[in-house]
């Protein structure tokens, strides 16, 4: 039963990283695009992501619920020591969500659109950075777990662990990953000029991603971040990374050819490979503190709870996945030939 729960934990984690990430990415692309491209990106992201963007973010809620039900000890540590970045993430999610809906559902289209647009773009960029930083903090080895709160300063316990160069790099890496996924996804949803634009962006973001990834590993190596050291000495992780590097070649080819199906699959596989590589080397010790490594399974909930949760997840999955699949199929397949004007009114 524990394996079922673990499966769903990582399933929702990966899906959030991928789908939620693509969602953030659409905003990031908009932020860094030229004014003309901004307009295209805006309309396309509404049409493609609109029906599913809400669903994408529920994976985060599912993940949180699984963590607190099944891994309360682990959840407890995250919630105490990463309080501040989570406040920022929540702020980002809130502003982003409302900006998205406001800009598309405001009955009057006027100057306030400018505000909604910038709110949406900036929070799309900031939120994944903080998400990445939180993850970076968990593996960065700077968290101090203590009962003696008076013995340390506020900064040492609640700020330093998540605000340092390493976590910033992880944050940037994730934000770039988001932009990469979104542009690759959107290639398949567009035609003509817009498609060229996304192909170009996708290629650029891939390059940027590889560069930041290398800097991240190099930085981790030289400052002896344990997670990185273990990661680059673990044969399976290395294998996964090498595989994903090799896959870059067909990915680039398919992006150049604007092949929607292949570029999407390849991009998805690559991201999963990288994540897998990162987590595999350390599983189940996914919190690394200054003192010790904390296992996900430390303080795992009792068997009855785990079995109950597993059953709920299976039932939930059986209800949800077909519906979700149907939703994506219904709307992703709809061709984009309708006029812009049509798209503006729901």
């Amino acid at each position: 039963m524990l394996y079922i729960v673990l499966f769903f934990t990582f399933f929702s984690f990966f899906l959030y990283v991928l789908l939620g990430g693509a969602d953030f990415g659409a905003g990031i692309i908009e932020l860094f695009a030229s004014p003309k491209d901004k307009e295209t990106a805006r309309n396309i992201s509404y049409r493609v992501l609109g029906p599913v963007w809400e669903v994408n973010h529920i994976w985060l809620i599912i993940l949180i619920v699984i963590l607190w039900v099944a891994f309360p000890g682990y959840f407890n540590v995250i919630m105490i020591y990463l309080h501040l970045p989570f406040v920022l993430i929540l702020l980002g999610i809130t502003l982003r969500g409302v900006a998205f809906i406001f800009r598309h559902y405001d009955a009057v289209v006027d100057r306030s659109q400018v505000l909604y647009n910038w709110m949406f773009r900036i929070s799309s960029f900031i939120t994944p950075i903080f998400l990445g930083m939180s993850f970076g903090a968990l593996i960065g080895g700077e968290i101090i777990i203590t009962e003696d709160y008076a013995g340390y300063s506020f900064f040492e316990i609640f700020i330093d662990p998540w605000l340092n160069y390493f976590t910033l790099l992880v944050g940037l890496f994730y934000a770039t990953l988001c932009a990469f996924m979104a542009s690759t996804l959107l290639i398949g949803e567009t035609q003509g000029e817009a498609r060229k634009m996304f192909s170009r962006k996708s290629a650029n973001y891939t390059l940027l991603l590889v560069i930041i990834g290398l800097i991240l590993v190099a930085y981790g190596y030289f400052t002896e971040v344990e997670f990185i050291l273990d990661f680059i000495t673990n044969p399976v992780s290395i294998g996964a990374i090498v595989l994903s590097a090799i896959l870059l070649i067909p990915l680039w080819k398919s992006i150049r050819k604007q092949n929607r199906i292949w570029s999407r699959w390849l991009a998805g596989i690559q991201v999963v490979l990288v994540l897998f590589a990162a987590i595999y080397a350390h599983f189940p010790y996914i919190i690394i503190t200054s003192e010790k490594e904390l296992s996900l399974l430390e303080g795992v909930a009792p068997d009855e709870v785990i079995s109950n949760l597993a059953i709920m997840l299976i039932i939930g999955g059986a209800v949800i996945l077909p519906g979700l699949f149907h939703l994506m199929r219904s709307f992703n397949m709809i061709k984009i030939l309708e006029k812009e004007k049509e798209e503006m009114k729901p």
């Binding site: 619920v65 699984i66 607190w68 039900v69 099944a70 309360p72 000890g73 959840f75 407890n76 919630m79 303080g299 909930a301 009792p302 709870v305 109950n308 949760l309 709920m312 997840l313 939930g316």
Partner: peptide, 14 residues
């Protein structure tokens, strides 16, 4: 949440 989370997990997961 550390103690109650697992106990009231069922309504939340549903």
């Amino acid at each position: 949440m550390k103690h109650a989370g697992p106990i009231i997990g069922m309504p939340f997961s549903l």
